[in-house]
Nucleic acid binder design. Sequence first.
RNA 1: GGGCGGAUAGCUCAGCUGGGAGAGCACAGCCCUUACAAGGCUGGGGUCACAGGUUCGAUCCCUGUUCCGCCUACCA
Length: 907
Amino acid sequence: MTELNKSYNPKGVEEKWYDRWMTDRYFEADPSSSKKPFSIVIPPPNVTGSLHMGHALNTTIQDILARWKRMSGYDVLWVPGMDHAGIATQNVVERQIANEGLDRHWLGRDAFIERVWKWKEEYGGKIIHQLKRLGASCDWSRERFTLDEGLSRAVVEVFVSLYEQGLIYRDKRLINWCPRCHTALSDIEVEHEEFEGKLTYIKYPLIDGSGHIIVATTRPETMLGDTAVAVNPEDARYSDLIGKVLLLPLAGRKIPVVSDNAVDPAFGTGAVKVTPAHDFNDEAIAKRQDPPLPAVSVIGPDGRMTGEAGAKYEGMDRYECRKAVLQDLREAGLISKQEKHVHAISQCYRCKTVIEPISALQWYVKVKPLAEKAIDVVRNGEIDIVPKTWENTYFAWMENINDWCISRQIWWGHRIPAWYCDCGEVIVSRKVPAKCEKCGGSALRQDEDVLDTWFSSALWPFSTLGWPEDTRELSRYYPTSVLVTGFDIIFFWVARMIMMGMKFREGVPFRDVYIHALVRDSSGQKMSKSKGNVIDPLVMMDKYGTDAFRFTLAAFAAQGRDVKFAEERVEGYRHFVNKLWNASRFILLNAADVSVPEKIETRKLDIGSKWILSRLSATAQEINGSLGDYRFNDAAGSIYQFIWHELCDWYIEMVKPVLYAETDEKKQVKECLLYVLDHTLKLLHPFMPYVTEEIWQNIPIRSRKSEEGNQISEHAGARYLRPSSEDKSIVIARYPEGQLRDEKAEEEMAVIMEAVTGVRTIRGELNLSPSIELKVSVKTLNEKTKKILKKNLVYLKKLAKADIIAIGGDAGKPKGSAAAVRKHVEVYVPLEGLLNIDLEVDRLSKEGAKLEQTILFLNKKLLNEDFLSRAPKDVVDKEKEKYEECLRKKERVQENIRKLCEAGGKA
RNA sequence: GGGCGGAUAGCUCAGCUGGGAGAGCACAGCCCUUACAAGGCUGGGGUCACAGGUUCGAUCCCUGUUCCGCCUACCA
């Protein structure tokens, strides 16, 4: 056995084991296996990405599930991969070539794409290494990329097929346009943020000179594109003006006053300027008019004013133009007032540039028919969303869903498989068409646009498994078992995967969706570069080790609540790693000469061993239950509690006298220690993969040792043999399920603990040094208790550091003793020569007062006729019992005080 | 505007279907006891946001209020 250092140092250990796991191919799925499959597809991180807290939490949770299931006998497939991240990646490479003084248009499409691929080879996928560092047990032999060949074929297949079914169409209408990224965006790629702006009131004169209408706007520059002013038909102030004509200032155009129900008479002046070409509302109003109002586009795709805006403004940036328009209006005396106004502004989710609605020809997916089925499968439970509260969000969105704009005016992505002929024919095809089907012309141009990145992500659960080919992976691992993701992409990704899965696989893409929280900083703020509150997971792993970091995430991943992350927590869990390390060191040092038994004969074991085995089983059952319900924090809490407060605080302390003496029990205890350590490490492994493997590999396991040619055969434990394959790595060892509990052992142990803590309380509260061995007299309240304590005297002595001078129902109370009154026992410690008695009298009086309060409360309750008659009988009985116990206790406490006073008086 | 969630110890949070509240950290006291001072033992600390209601009984269920967060939306 290698010597373990005094404290755990993760450096080197993590790489060593991850490499070994990869070499031995433990993470690879086996489609021909007879085991039950368990599959997860990773939410593909952007190829431009670098590991942040969100990834860390997401990956840790998936890895816990994957490792747990793998150890529980499943054939686990966790598919990793990356997303090509159209806009984000293109942005990165454009910035790179800009440094060389180039731009993509100068390079040309093909050369630019080549540059992006080159960038991907060089810098992309940094995040993959970071995921490995976190310990992610993905099947890396199946790593995919949304733009690789197979996935691209799936994309084309889906696009063409949807087009053929009339579910994809092309249309010209107002879209969200990012003037910086130079592309259309879907509705959900637009973020709304509130800002304080100005509401400007502008006079629009009537053409007949009879007066004017005042309109209010937050975007004065758009007035150049106005084609009407709308009022509410019910609004008496304006009813006479409907149908009249206004002279649009600056532009000099004649525009009508129209009526529309959507106009709110209470807002502004009750009159709205209508700019159909640059506002979604206005476009709707324009369409409702008969005849529809014309649209005048005054802002171009680059965010600059067009010729339609008038010669004076043409070419100006839209904000520059706003200033100019305001200036000109002011000079013309047409501004009636300006006031502060808080309103939401739409921004590009990639670059935060303010969105400009402009009219353009784009491709759309008709989502309503797809959404219906996707709603059904969640409603009828074929898919469970955990926590359930997210289902509401899901339904609300799906029921009000708009068509999905899928074309993007960028180059990096899946090019739309549509070709145009000069004759006007549009050909959508799986293969590059040779000639026009209509006119036979061969001068076909492919659509310049690419698809929204999320279009390919929507296919991820089946495209990664080989679809549209009919692969065995597809039939074995689809639908996947669970999808783990953050709520921020429920609409972007989850909903669309469900829609596409239902459409193309006629079945759900996953059974469960586990939605985890957002990782925030310690004061609850979202982490962001601009706020400077970002915590880097890599730094955490460097400083505290991956295991401590992962455990922190798991321990705080309570359902439905954000994780407020603070570095001190990781530090705390590093202490836990160290605690485990040292406990293991103790066990391995003391039990090196035996092997882990496959089974333990519990009958002959001492009480402590029986108890710890029972607690181990309870813990295993709890963890399996919690993980099955995605309660990661509970699972982490169970194992933490067990290791620290049961194994270390009690069991290891209890066995010391056995180990340090020559007793018959010694070997059994050693084996039990090893057995418990072995199982504990397995239970913990999904949370802390590295340290558990490092320790586990040092556990004497007979078969492993003999394989390595060690001298194990002389060992006493040689008769215990375990199947060798599971012994090679904890990664593939069998996950403990928990055996039968030993309730009797737990009861007996409770009595021992009661007596021990009784002595400790006296020692602690009276400030008696731990180094003094106290003389203790234990009065037991029944025969059973007495028997238990007598049988286990050795533990009592050791744990309480006490010399037990008397034990039993007749154990008298020595004069001038401190006392601890417990349920089964009373513990007395003579204070003679140790301390002043007043302190103990005070302490007991306080305890008596507490008891008195409880008694009063319970008494009142038990005198309440309503309670006695209406509360369930078992509750009443329980309260009665509690009451009587308190009475007894109080009597004893008072008795003790009295005797103590007598003794004090005599002394 | 609509919706969702939160408010429990100094801090961060648990608390499953109602039966006088727990943990970790922090704090205080005593200890270098041969696995671990990154440790051990002991202890103090809470009007469960506020006001009503249902109930024998409410941190928990219902209604309203206040304060936070988030999602969503076409008040120009």
